[in-house]
């Protein structure tokens, strides 16, 4: 348990204000239920996402660094980002600024022209919502706080690409027992197991959902998502737990598209891990935004006595 994660800066990012609002809502509710405090960054901007990175990686570094600077100016040394894309980009900015003089130069130049002070590497630590809950509360404590056990709900934990790759921007991972693994991540598994779920052995934890091309190359994305969905079902999962708004909406959207376009129907439900944790902590399904999901899981949840 890490005392310093009890109150952290919160960077929701654009997706959580749009298609990922259920993730935003459930993350805040879980934080509240666990007595953790989130303070949203004032006047934040887009982290640059993959799209600006494709146009110019140093520009993405500048956009992400601007948010880290806001956290620093608000007096925080930790910023929590629930979106894999934002999390990845803030981490990447941190790495680039401490390893690449060219990135430092570009960020300093753009900050000066914007009338801001540039962010300097090493001042703010970026963590994911998984690390936040796991390190601020811990699985033992979480187990004690569970009011409504997930009751053996069979879950495939899906982490996607950006939470673990490329490994060099996550220096704290792969550090042996207790640390997160980039090859076989387990933080979400640990939390959901503590909440009473049964995690199925799922080989596609870090497979790609094609989120980058979810609209621009929909057929590729649909095939990749269908592979994830059918594998999860073959592994016995009733639910795929997600921790990224792009993965989540990609899985939901292409589950429907696979049925409409390819005629392949899958029944596995898709829920944010924060929605599952929230219900385990006694919050209602509505409170954690289950009705805001495209994936219709309410019947399953009712049958399991959740929400």
């Amino acid at each position: 348990m890490t005392e310093k994660y009890r109150k952290v800066a919160y960077y929701p990012g654009c997706a959580l204000e749009g298609t990922g609002h259920a993730y935003n809502r459930s993350t805040k509710e879980v934080g509240k239920a666990l007595g953790l405090e989130l303070v949203e960054l004032e006047n934040w901007n887009c982290c640059g996402a993959m799209e600006v990175k494709n146009v110019d990686p140093k520009l993405q570094t500048f956009l992400s660094a601007r948010n880290l600077k806001i956290a620093e100016d608000m007096g925080f040394d930790t910023v929590m980002a629930p979106c894999n894309g934002c999390y990845h980009n803030l981490k990447k900015a941190e790495y680039d600024l401490s390893h690449d003089a060219g990135s430092r130069e570009t960020v300093a130049k753009l900050a000066a022209k914007s009338g801001d002070q540039p962010y300097e590497a090493g001042n703010v630590e970026t963590i994911h919502a998984l690390e936040w809950i796991r390190d601020a509360i811990g699985t033992d404590e979480l187990r004690k706080r569970v009011k409504n056990s997930l009751n053996g709900l069979k879950i495939a934990n899906y982490y996607g690409c950006m939470y673990t790759r490329p490994r060099h921007i996550f220096p704290e991972k792969d550090k042996g027992p207790g640390s997160e693994s980039t090859g076989k991540p387990h933080f979400m598994d640990d939390l959901l197991a503590a909440a009473g779920a049964v995690n199925v052995e799922f080989p596609l934890k870090t497979a790609c959902c094609g989120g980058a091309h979810t609209l621009s190359d929909s057929d590729t994305s649909t095939r990749l998502v269908l592979n994830i969905l059918t594998t999860a079902e073959a592994c016995g999962a009733e639910v795929i737990a997600t921790e990224c708004p792009t993965c989540h909406s990609g899985l939901e959207m292409h589950q429907i598209r696979a049925e409409k376009v390819l005629g392949k129907k899958t029944n596995v439900k898709i829920l944010y891990f924060t929605q599952l944790l929230g219900m385990a902590l006694g919050l209602s399904a509505r409170k954690v935004g289950v009705n805001e999901n495209f994936s219709e899981s309410r019947d399953l949840l009712k049958a399991k006595g959740l929400g």
Binding site: E17, N45, C46, A49, E51, V52, N54, V55, H213, S216
Partner: peptide
């Protein structure tokens, strides 16, 4: 995909958010 990158980036550059 390039069109998507462009449309996305143009919006970020202009507004700061998506």
């Amino acid at each position: 995909s390039m069109i998507f990158d462009d449309v996305f980036s143009e919006q970020v550059f202009a507004k700061g958010k998506i």
